[in-house]
C-alpha cells in the first residue's frame, strides 16, 4: 500500500510538472474557443446562449466548467473569450 501511495504522489508530481509546462499562457483565442465550446459543452448538456448570463457570471461559470469538462487553462480562456465576444450590444450592460 505504501508503494502505491508513493507511486500516486509521483504521478501527481509528473502531471503537475506537465501542466505547469503547458501553462505557457497565450492570448485568448476566440476561434479556438468556439471549437472547444462546440466539441465539449454539448457532450453533457444543451448549450447556453451568451445572453443567458452576465459577463461576471460567465467568468464564474466557465471556471466551474473547466473542472467539470477537464479543460486546460488556455482552453478555458479561449472559450471565455468566445462567449464574451459573442454577447450582443443589447446585453452588453450585464
Amino acid at each position: 500500500m505504501k508503494n502505491l501511495i508513493k507511486t500516486t504522489i509521483l504521478l501527481c508530481m509528473l502531471f503537475g510538472a506537465n501542466s505547469l509546462m503547458a501553462s505557457d499562457a497565450k492570448k485568448a483565442d476566440a476561434i479556438n474557443g468556439a471549437s472547444v465550446w462546440a466539441d465539449t459543452c454539448m457532450r453533457c448538456h444543451n448549450l447556453r446562449a451568451p445572453e443567458d448570463l452576465s459577463q461576471r457570471a460567465w467568468v464564474y461559470s466557465i471556471n466551474h466548467m473547466r473542472i467539470r469538462a477537464g479543460l486546460t487553462g488556455q482552453e478555458t480562456r479561449d472559450v471565455l473569450e468566445f462567449i464574451l465576444s459573442s454577447k450582443t450590444d443589447a446585453d452588453e450592460h450585464n
Binding site: D39, R66, G70, T72, G73
Partner: peptide, 17 residues
C-alpha cells in the same frame, strides 16, 4: 487534482487523480 492535458497526437484528453 484534475484538468486538461496538452494535445497528444492532435487529440485532447483530461485526467483526475
Amino acid at each position: 487534482l484534475r484538468g486538461g492535458l496538452p494535445k497528444i497526437a492532435g487529440l485532447r484528453s483530461n485526467y483526475v487523480l
